[in-house]
Amino acid sequence: MAKADIFSGFLGAGKTTLIKKLIAEGYQGEKLVLIENEFGDIGIDGSFMKEAGIEITEMNSGCICCSLVGDFEKALEKVCEELSPDRILIEPSGVGKLSDVIKAVSAVNGIEIGSAAVVADAMRCKMYANNFGEFYNDQIKSAGTIILSRTGDIGEDKLHECMELLKQRNDCAIIITTPWDELTGTQILDTIHRNNTLETQLNELQSAHEHHHEHGEECGCGHDHHDHDHHHHHADDVFASWGIETPKKYSRAELESLLEELDNSAKYGVVLRAKGIVASEEGWLHFDFVPGEPDIRTGSAEVTGRLCVIGSELKIDQLKTLFRI
């Protein structure tokens, strides 16, 4: 069974650049086929693909009026039969609906959806969402992961505005906010494929603390919920965890005082441990807090900032205010 990774996004969002990066740095040891359904600006050139040992298929129906139909499914089936790949990367037309592509791919025998992502230009996503309407919003809504491009070119306010807009349309997707050059292809792929999520980090943190507790059900909202508050209640309701993803930047000094504050159990509940990776002007800060012992060091970038807190009777609203969320 071949897995299909779909990368949608409007023209010029950076799909091709991203796919190139993922092929060069992310996909390892799999037989890949790339299907392009768009006439790109920076087409992936043949020699690059040859070097990487990748088959490339172009489908000539990128025009908005020639919608995605039978041909697409037929071409996919043919690719599977002739090349039997492990993974198929699909770059659909930038002006098509992602939900249509997902539907079409799901209908093909021998292929299952590995992931569906959308690449969105952080600088333009508000403008596109307002003016393009249906197909653009469909891409945002249908994506499991939203990969923002050009986040390095915009200020924090603009990024915040963009995040709000995206969350309104899709509060389940993980939103990658870190500029791509700070990330490896593997990091991005692990996010798209859900190998590294807020959920997994929360669980890790929790299991380290709860050997004597029964591990409750996963958050009932399904594995796709990642970009909103996570508040895990357990059977005895003593032990709770809270996690959030944010592109917000914190200075080291601010983070230090934030973590010191966490000792105030009257205000925040009993925090047993807090861990996270956040962006700052001086690079990425990794922190690990146990009462009385805040530890902050600089480290590698994460796809977006993440905060995890575990403890009992946590006051989520207070925590949010503390972290300016």
Binding site: L11, C63, I64, S93, V95
Partner: peptide, 11 residues
């Protein structure tokens, strides 16, 4: 961007 737009949104 015109050439890309023309290729993909010809109509």
């Amino acid at each position: 961007t015109f050439l890309t737009y023309n290729a993909n949104m010809r109509s």
